[in-house]
Design a protein around this nucleic acid. Structure first.
Lengths: 271, 271
DNA sequence: TCAAAATCGATCATAAACAAACAAATTGAC
DNA sequence: GTCAATTTGTTTGTTTATGATCGATTTTGA
C-alpha cells in the first residue's frame, strides 16, 4: 500500500470516529507503530489531526466544530446517547427528514452515517459536516445567517427554504417543555424556525432529556399536542409522560443502559 | 504500444481506482519501471495525478461519489498556505466577501478568524464551521444540496441565494486555468455556481497554485479576463503570469517562504 | 507518592524506489 | 542507405520508506 493511500485511510477513519489509537491503526493498516507515528506526525503537520499520547484526535471532523458552551461530554451525555439511539430507529431508509441542530440531534446524526437512500435537510452546519462523507445520505441545508449563539442558520433564506419543502419527519431538540405552556425556546429566531419545521413535516419527533421538563423559556413555539412522538430518557418524571400521552403524544422512553461506573472511562481526553 | 496510448491507459486505470503502484503499472503495461516513472512524471506535469513513493494518486474527481484527492489532501500545502496568506490581505474589514469552498480558500478562511465587521457568504459547510466562533464575522450560507465529491452546496437554493446578493469581493478556488480556454472545473454544478458568484461580485479574486496552470477540465466557467486578481505561488511558469497580465488580470505571486531544504521534509518534526 | 506498563523519539539497517546518465532500439527525413 | 531525434531499457549511485532497537517520557494504578 502506498504511503499516501495509508494516510488517506487514516483520514477516512478519523472522519467517521473522532479519535483513533495508534495501536488500532497498526492493526487496521498492517504496519508497525513506527510507521503509524510517522504518518500521524505528517498528518499533524498538515493540520488534519492533533496527536496525543497513544493516538490522535481529528481536527477536521465536524465534532470539533461543536458549540463549546454545551459540550455534550458532560451534561447528561448518557441520556442523550440513549435518546439519540432510540430516535434513530424512527428514521427509516428512503425518508426525507429534517434534523434541527441541537446536541442530542447531533448525536442522532452520527448514527445515520451508514444509511441508504436517506434525505436529510438541516439548518445546522455541524450536522452537514457530520454527514458529508455519508455516501448513502443526501444532505440539504437551508442556508441563512449563522446565529452565533446557537450555531444554526435562520433568517430569510432559511425560512424560504423551509416554506418550500414537505418532510416525512422532523426531528427537533427541545430546550424547554411544559405541559400547559407547551414548548418554548430561548431564542426568538429559533422559535420561528421551529414553527416552520413543524408545519412542513408530516410527523414531528421531539427529543428532550428529563432536565427539560417542567421548564419555560422566553420564546413560545407551540403546544405539546403539536408533537407526534417525544423521545426522552428514563429519568423523566412519570407525571409528564402521562400528561403527554393524554395530550395525544406518543412517548418513547429510551433505556439508559450504559451506567457510568469509572469516574474517567474516557481515555484520551487527558487535557 | 505507443506512449500516448500507454498514458491513456494509466488515466483509465486511475479513473477506476484512486491509487496505483508503479510495479502494478509495469506489469499491466509491459514496460520497465523507468518508463512508468517517466509516464507518471509527465502525467503529474499535466495535473492528472500526484506521484507518491511507489506509485501515484489520482487527482481527477472520480466519477463515483468519492471525493477527489484534491478535496481531501493538503497537497502543495506550502504553496496553498502562501497563497492564502497573500490573499488574506486583499480582504478588508467592513467588506462583504464570498468564500467559495476549496482547500486553498479554506486556508484563507482560517486567517479571517480575528477580523471585525466582516461579512462572509459561502457555499461551503466547512468554511461555516471554521468561522462559526468568530464573533467579528457575520456568516451567511447559501444552503442547497451538498455535493458529495466537492463538499459544497449547489442547486436551486444556492443559486437563488446568489442571485439576490451583491458582493464587494468573491474569492474562488480555481481547479484548471488555461490562457486560451479560460477557467474550467470538473463539475458542472460547480461551474454554474462559479459563474453566478462571478456575476454577483464587484471584484473577483481567484486562487490557483502552479499545478493548475495550462490545464483544462470538463466544465467551462469563463475567460481569464473575468478574473480581476489572481493569486498564485512562485512555482508558476512566468509565461502564464505574462499572459494573464496581458489579458488585464492583476497577478499576485505569493512568496513561499518555507523552502524545503533539509532532508527532513515533513517527518521528524522535532519541535 | 512510587513502580510497572505503554508509548514516544531518535537512530540505524535494509530493501525498495528513485533520478540521472548512458546505451540500445526505433522512428522519420533526406 | 545515413543521420538525427525520439523512445525505451540498463546501469549506477542516491534517496526514501519501513521496521527494529534502545533509552526517555508519559500514563496508569496502587
Amino acid at each position: 500500500m502506498l504511503a499516501e493511500e495509508r494516510r488517506f485511510r487514516i483520514r477516512e477513519i478519523l472522519s467517521g470516529q473522532r479519535t483513533i489509537t495508534a495501536s488500532d491503526l497498526c492493526a487496521a493498516l498492517g504496519v508497525t507503530a513506527a510507521t503509524v507515528r510517522r504518518d500521524l506526525a505528517a498528518l499533524e503537520q498538515d493540520g488534519v489531526l492533533v496527536r496525543s499520547h497513544g493516538g490522535a484526535v481529528s481536527r477536521m471532523s465536524s465534532t470539533n466544530f461543536q458549540p463549546s458552551y454545551e459540550t455534550l461530554s458532560h451534561s447528561h451525555s448518557n441520556e442523550k446517547h440513549a435518546i439519540a439511539r432510540a430516535a434513530e430507529h424512527l428514521v427509516l431508509d428512503g425518508e426525507t427528514v429534517f434534523l434541527e441542530g441541537s446536541t442530542t440531534v447531533f448525536e442522532l446524526a452520527r448514527g445515520l452515517h451508514q444509511r441508504n437512500r436517506l434525505t436529510v435537510v438541516t439548518n445546522s452546519p455541524t450536522i452537514v459536516c457530520q454527514l458529508q462523507r455519508s455516501s448513502g445520505v443526501t444532505v440539504l441545508c437551508t442556508g441563512g445567517e449563522l446565529q452565533k449563539d446557537t450555531f444554526y442558520f435562520s433568517g430569510e433564506w432559511a425560512q424560504r427554504a423551509l416554506s418550500e419543502i414537505r418532510l416525512d419527519k422532523a426531528i427537533l431538540g427541545v430546550s424547554a417543555i411544559d405541559l400547559s405552556y407547551g414548548v418554548s425556546t430561548a431564542n426568538h429566531a429559533e422559535a420561528q424556525i421551529k414553527k416552520m419545521i413543524t408545519r412542513a413535516a408530516k410527523t414531528r419527533i421531539a427529543l428532550a432529556d428529563h432536565s427539560k421538563f417542567g421548564t419555560q423559556t422566553f420564546a413560545y413555539v407551540g403546544p405539546v399536542a403539536d408533537i407526534d412522538v417525544l423521545v426522552t430518557d428514563s429519568g423523566t418524571d412519570p407525571k409528564y409522560i402521562k400528561g403527554l400521552r393524554e395530550a395525544g403524544v406518543e412517548v418513547v422512553v429510551a433505556a439508559c443502559q450504559e451506567t457510568r461506573k469509572g469516574p474517567s472511562k474516557r481515555t484520551h481526553s487527558h487535557k
